[in-house]
Simulated assay, not measured.
Amino acid sequence: MVIVAGKGYVDPGHRQALLSSLQASVRQTRAEPGCLDYVVAADPVEPGRVNVYERWESKEHLAAHLAAMAPPAQPTPAVLSMEIAQYEISGSEPFQI
Rank of each mutant, 00 (worst) to 15 (best):
63 A>K: 09
62 L>V: 00
37 D>I: 09
75 P>C: 04
44 P>W: 15
45 V>L: 15
63 A>R: 09
50 V>R: 09
24 A>G: 10
31 A>I: 04
33 P>Y: 07
65 H>E: 00
85 A>Y: 08
31 A>N: 00
44 P>K: 14
62 L>K: 09
31 A>F: 12
49 R>K: 06
34 G>T: 06
61 H>E: 01
25 S>R: 15
45 V>I: 13
49 R>Y: 06
78 A>C: 14
39 V>M: 10
46 E>D: 10
42 A>M: 11
82 M>C: 07
36 L>E: 00
84 I>W: 04
55 R>M: 03
29 T>V: 07
75 P>I: 05
82 M>W: 10
49 R>D: 03
50 V>I: 07
81 S>Q: 11
71 P>Q: 06
86 Q>L: 15
49 R>C: 08
58 S>P: 03
73 A>Y: 10
25 S>Q: 15
32 E>P: 12
80 L>S: 05
42 A>C: 11
46 E>T: 05
76 T>A: 04
41 A>Q: 08
51 N>Q: 08
54 E>Q: 15
88 E>D: 07
59 K>I: 04
85 A>L: 09
25 S>I: 12
74 Q>F: 15
61 H>L: 02
54 E>R: 14
44 P>Y: 15
65 H>Y: 02
68 A>Y: 01
60 E>F: 10
68 A>W: 04
54 E>H: 13
40 V>C: 07
26 V>P: 15
64 A>S: 04
77 P>A: 04
71 P>T: 03
74 Q>I: 02
30 R>Y: 10
56 W>I: 01
61 H>M: 07
60 E>G: 05
42 A>P: 13
50 V>C: 08
64 A>H: 05
74 Q>D: 02
58 S>Y: 01
49 R>W: 02
